[in-house]
Design a binder for these strands. Structure first.
Length: 210
DNA sequence: TCATTAACACGGG
DNA sequence: CCCGTGTTAATGA
């Protein structure tokens, strides 16, 4: 784990901090499609991503969901950052998008390191800033883009994260994450296929334009 | 006009 | 058969 830390966070944190992280954290390998955090769950550890990707979803009252953004390597969970003091509950749901390797840090150390290490403070603040911008970007898309543009955007994000233009998903799953109905997704996907932007298969599709 | 809902047929695993 | 997919008709915003 020490080597993993060095590789992914060595350029951010000084050796002393890396050593502390190493001493108090646990390394986890989490398979694709695993729910890591649920709404209402109390957060006791904060994740530092080494490899893989996690999708962050917001649940509404009816059990409907909406994709907020993806976390990739080097990212951390902003939700954890906001409720590191006390024992606040999570407002979001986190599910691994692909196989993911991450380090879990007990939230107790978050505060300690905030005062002790400038590099940690900078990292937390910058993460917070980045997540905020991602959120704004998502809000912009929901507010100003039509569903067909959002769909294409979503597919490109997926392709980017998987490092592959072949995307393994169903129309229904896309519909949930973009918060619309499957009929719409099916129709739009069909349209994209006619435009030669994608190729449709069962349980997967392939992106042709990047 | 366009999204949603329900309903149905098709077909692959 | 079960489920994902493609399509349509009715309804509503």
């Amino acid at each position: 784990m020490r080597q993993d830390l060095k590789t992914h966070y060595g350029h951010l944190f000084e050796n002393e901090l890396l050593e502390e992280i190493n001493n108090v954290s646990t390394l986890k390998n989490i398979p694709e499609g695993t729910q890591i955090i649920d709404v209402g769950q109390t957060l006791t550890k904060m994740p530092l991503l080494l490899e893989g990707a996690i999708k962050i979803l917001r649940d509404d009252d009816n059990g409907d969901e909406l994709l907020l953004y993806f976390l990739e390597k080097g990212d951390t969970c902003a939700m954890t950052l906001t409720c590191c003091t006390g024992s606040a509950k999570s407002e979001i749901k986190a599910i691994t998008e692909i196989d993911t390797k991450l380090i879990m840090v007990p939230v107790f150390y978050m505060e300690v390191w905030m005062g002790k290490y400038k590099s940690w403070r900078d990292f937390v603040l910058e993460s917070y800033q980045t997540r905020m911008l991602e959120l704004l970007d998502t809000i912009d898309k929901i507010a100003f883009l039509k569903m067909d543009e959002r769909l294409l955007n979503y597919l490109k994000d997926k392709a980017m994260i998987n490092g592959n233009t072949k995307i393994k998903t169903t129309h229904q799953e896309i519909a949930y994450e973009l918060h619309t109905s499957r009929v719409v997704i099916s129709r739009l996907l069909k349209k994209l296929e006619l435009q030669k932007a994608i190729v449709l298969h069962r349980n997967s599709l392939e992106l042709l334009t990047l």
